[in-house]
Each structure stands twice: as structure tokens, then as C-alpha cells.
């Protein structure tokens, strides 16, 4: 499908949604890579997930309802992941009293 064809099928709002999704995803990636606070990194991960959700919703306009259904799955998994992730962060905080990722070197060998 050509670019013009794709733009036509998505419509203007769809394109805007994809752009927003790309921006959100990039912000999430940059945040994950650069920030050291575990909570912020975690939030950035959520941002990336939701950016993906947004593009799924946008594409569902072109391909049908499956994309939106998929979003629900992602949200459910994200919720479960958030529960586990936050629990880990709290456990670490209780132990070290910081949430700075550079201070943790546990994940080796």
C-alpha cells in the first residue's frame, strides 16, 4: 500500500493519532533510557505501552475491530505488570530507601 493510500484509509485523525503515538513512544523510550528514578522509568514503560495502544486503535479504523480488542488485552496485561512492578519497586525501596536504578546492581551473574 502506498503512503498516500495508507493516509487515505486512515484519515487525518488517524494520522494525527499515529504521530502522537510515535511521539509518546519516543518520549517513553528516552525516559526509560535516561531517567534513573525507578518510578519514572516505570511510568515511561506505561507510556510506551499506551503509545502502542494508541496506534492499535488508530489502525483498527483501517483493519477492523481486532485492534481495539487487542488494546484491552494489553491494558489488562499492563495492569498486572504494574502491580508486580510496583511491588518490586516498593520492596527495593524498603530495603535500600532509594529508588535510584544506578544504585542497584543485583541483576548480574
Amino acid at each position: 500500500m502506498s503512503e498516500a493510500g495508507m493516509a487515505g484509509a486512515l484519515g487525518l485523525n488517524g494520522l494525527i493519532a499515529l504521530f502522537v503515538s510515535a511521539i509518546l513512544f519516543s518520549i517513553g523510550v528516552i525516559g526509560v533510557l535516561l531517567r534513573r528514578n525507578a518510578i519514572i522509568v516505570f511510568m515511561c514503560v506505561e507510556l510506551m505501552l499506551n503509545a502502542a495502544n494508541l496506534s492499535l486503535v488508530a489502525f483498527s479504523r483501517m483493519h477492523g475491530i481486532e485492534g481495539q480488542i487487542f488494546v484491552f488485552f494489553v491494558m489488562a496485561v499492563a495492569a498486572a505488570e504494574a502491580a508486580v512492578g510496583l511491588a518490586i519497586i516498593i520492596a527495593i525501596f524498603r530495603h535500600y530507601e532509594v529508588v535510584d536504578l544506578d544504585r542497584f546492581r543485583l541483576l548480574k551473574w
Binding site: V41, L101, D102, F104, R105, L107, K108
Partner: peptide, 17 residues
């Protein structure tokens, strides 16, 4: 191989990326 595993989350994330 062990040297790749710094234990720093960010390193892993970069590698993942």
C-alpha cells in the same frame, strides 16, 4: 560474557533497545 552483565538496569535496557 560476564562482563556484559553489569547489573545496571539501564545497560540492559539499551541492549534490549
Amino acid at each position: 560474557g560476564g562482563q556484559l552483565q553489569t547489573g545496571r538496569v539501564t545497560t540492559y535496557l539499551v541492549a534490549f533497545m
